[in-house]
């Protein structure tokens, strides 16, 4: 039976989840959508961010969101370092298609195994006063562990969108995606800009990771489920369009929650991958992409 309150709860929960998905995907929208770097290790960095939040939270009792913000600069420099290796080994020699992909795949694998070796395969979680609380509006329940990530993710998405469209550096990142040669002729160094943008994308994973562990417990291989989600969202959103990505994230969140509510949670991992396969087969430019 399809009951109204179950349906309404699923829609609201889906929107909240989708908002969080936007935070996971926004970095990939920059690397994959704008820079044309297929960073398969992106979700692994998100999980690494979760573990950073777990460590600092259990050691010092800091708020997870605060930890995310504190870790972001560190992740930024890690991102820059990785881009330097990637550029020197693959992009400069024009081998990014085959070897670059395998490079990030290996990187993802290494991050996962290191986390397993250090912390085991147990689920880890954080504690914060708002986790476990919820507010009820009518028959719809809004748990804070979903509301807080949604709010932070919305702020992050809006911030990145404004940064890319309003500031000089942000526009330079968009320009490097559109026409690398023209940018070079204008006297800017595309490699420096890409390096900065890649650092920015990895910095967002520190925040996304802290949100991930607020929503629920995290274990090292959790990132794999997010590979499909993040890529589905970025492709569906039209490769690099931030508003398109946000709408696609909400859409995937709602569809996934619907499937989990009415068919059972064991089916929900297939949703985003199914959407991804369908998008690639039917409309590879995404919902909002240019033809």
């Amino acid at each position: 039976m399809l009951s109204v309150d179950l349906f309404a709860n699923a829609i609201v929960a889906g929107l909240l989840l989708g908002g969080f998905y936007a935070a996971v995907s926004i970095g990939l929208a920059i690397t994959f959508g704008q820079l044309d770097i297929v960073n398969i290790a992106h979700p692994a960095f998100v999980v690494a961010g979760s573990y950073a939040a777990y460590i600092l939270n259990s050691e010092f009792g800091l708020d997870p969101v605060l930890i995310g913000l504190l870790m972001a600069p560190l992740f930024f420099f890690v991102g820059i370092a990785i881009y330097r290796v990637y550029y020197a080994a693959f992009e400069r020699t024009g081998q990014e298609s085959l070897s670059g992909l395998a490079f990030f795949f290996g990187l993802m694998f290494i991050i996962e195994v290191l986390l397993i070796m250090a912390y085991g395969v147990d689920y880890r979680l954080v504690s914060a006063p708002y986790i476990g609380q919820s507010i009820d509006i009518g028959f719809v329940g809004l748990p804070y562990r979903m509301l807080v990530p949604f709010g932070v993710a919305a702020a992050l998405t809006a911030g990145i969108y404004l940064y890319l469209s309003r500031t000089f550096m942000g526009r330079a990142i968009l320009a490097v995606a559109q026409d690398r040669l023209a940018l070079q002729l204008m006297g800017a160094d595309p490699v420096k800009i890409k390096q900065f943008a890649f650092g920015l994308a990895i910095a967002t994973t520190a925040i996304a990771g802290s949100l991930l562990i607020i929503i629920g417990p995290v274990e090292p291989s959790l990132g794999r489920q997010y590979i499909g989600r993040a890529f589905a969202i970025v492709v569906l959103g039209g490769m690099g369009s931030i508003p398109g990505m946000a709408i696609a994230a909400l859409l995937i969140g709602v569809v996934e929650t619907m499937v989990a509510t009415f068919m059972g949670p064991s089916w929900s991992p297939a949703v985003s991958f199914g959407v991804l396969l369908l998008t690639l087969a039917l409309r590879p430019s995404g919902l909002f992409g240019r033809k």
């Binding site: 297929v38 992909l101 794999r224 499909g228 890529f231 589905a232 492709v235 297939a270 199914g274 396969l277």
Partner: peptide, 13 residues
């Protein structure tokens, strides 16, 4: 690239 991502997707499906 799309083929690569699709193979990942296929495995999870």
């Amino acid at each position: 690239v799309y083929f690569s991502i699709a193979t990942l997707a296929m495995a999870i499906v």
